[in-house]
Simulated scan of single mutants.
Amino acid sequence: MAIAAVVAVGGLLATVALAPLPRPSVALADAAATSLSPFHGDVQDFSVPGDLTTAAVSREGYAAATGPETLVASGTNYDWATLVLVLGDWPVTDENVRLMVEWMREENGPDNWWNRNNPLNNGYGSGGGSGLGSYATLVDAARYAASNLQKRTFYADIVAGLEAGTSADATARAIWASPWAESHYGYGTWWSTSRVPEVAAPASAWGR
């Protein structure tokens, strides 16, 4: 009897030990599904009107602009030409930049375009009415060049050409017809349209 009892108890224990336990993940998932469903299995329908339109999305436009410090850091004749355009609030186009560097070459030559820190031999603000004055820096020279063109009515055609920014040749003709240079650049006979070499001015000319 004792042996039988032991065998019976052992068998019972074996049965309990071998019985598979419910997987916690399944049980928890079922419980969570039941508790999180407010309708307990009910299906909810909804419809969208056929004339529903998508809301418009506003996208801001951005444009990159060249800052004076960037131009000063590079420091070439092309940068100075661009600086005049920036300070005059004229479009920085290929035609406008080409016009400016060609004009600078006619005044001082490409290898010494920063002569007296006055690339266009501008008399306004330089202390030299004939255009032989000088400026403290090339930044000052760019500011005075833009200002002189804007404030004199007899430079209106030059300004109009710069504002359009579409034809270096047309703006050059306006320069020849203006009183900027007594020679009027030979009304174009002395004006070269060949490519102007890019030359950097000394940092000191920029006030650096």
Rank of each mutant, 00 (worst) to 15 (best):
P20D: 12
W114S: 08
W80T: 04
Q150F: 01
S167Q: 09
L21G: 14
A17C: 10
V26A: 15
S47G: 05
V139C: 03
D111V: 12
R105E: 13
E102H: 15
W180T: 04
V101S: 08
T153A: 15
Y62N: 00
R152F: 11
P22D: 14
G186K: 01
S130Q: 06
V159N: 01
A2K: 14
M100D: 04
G188S: 03
T53R: 01
V16R: 13
T70V: 14
L12I: 15
P22V: 09
G75N: 11
R116S: 14
L21T: 15
A136C: 02
T54L: 06
R23T: 14
G125L: 01
N108M: 00
N117T: 10
V92E: 08
P197A: 11
A81V: 07
A203P: 00
Y135D: 03
L13E: 10
W190K: 10
Y78F: 14
Q44S: 11
E163G: 10
A201V: 12
V9M: 13
A177K: 07
A27Q: 12
A32E: 13
S147G: 02
T171S: 08
G67I: 12
I3M: 10
A5E: 13
D94L: 12
P197C: 07
T137V: 04
T34C: 04
A29N: 12
P49A: 02
L149E: 04
S47I: 00
A172N: 07
W206A: 05
A136S: 09
G186Q: 02
T189C: 01
V57G: 07
P24Y: 13
W191C: 10
A174V: 10
G161F: 02
S178D: 06
A168F: 08
S130N: 12
G75M: 08
N117G: 08
N121R: 15
E102K: 14
L120P: 00
G41H: 00
Y78S: 07
G10M: 13
L138H: 01
H40N: 03
Y144M: 00
G186T: 10
